[in-house]
Nucleic acid binder design. Structure first.
Length: 112
DNA sequence: GTCTTGACTTCGG
DNA sequence: GCCGAAGCCAAGA
């Protein structure tokens, strides 16, 4: 870590998303709050760029505050979020995470 | 250089 | 409880 010019805020987002355990999900707001980005939109931008920089990023575990798979449209149709989440043991219904609050993974409480 | 859009969140009606 | 608007920061045109 602590790279000179490569220390972009997405790097922290990617690293945090990678730390998300299987079967768990998190929200943009919690990531932005933990990284002190100030806006959840920064997380969305980071994940948007992650398609080129970090294709292996488990972004399917990141959803909006409603527990909705808002970014599923940005995923590959053959590897949709529902499929990956279901593979992780997460139940998804109507593009929404079942028992979202129970599966919600907060970095501040887990790491800190 | 400014303006618009974007995988969001929160407040107000 | 649901819909509309504002706020926020960053990147692309």
């Amino acid at each position: 870590m602590c790279k000179d010019k490569d220390t972009h805020y997405y790097e922290q987002v990617y690293d945090l998303v990678r730390l998300i355990p299987s079967g768990r999900v998190t929200t943009y707001g919690h990531i932005a709050d933990y990284l002190s980005l100030g806006s959840a939109r920064m997380v969305g931008w980071a994940l948007n760029q992650s398609h080129s920089t970090m294709p292996d990023l488990p972004a399917h575990r990141v959803v909006n505050r409603k527990g909705e798979l808002s970014g599923r449209h940005h995923f590959d149709p053959d590897y949709s979020m529902e499929s990956r989440l279901h593979n992780d043991g997460v139940e998804v219904e109507n593009n929404k995470i079942v028992r979202f609050e129970e599966l919600l993974w907060i970095p501040m409480e887990q790491i800190f």
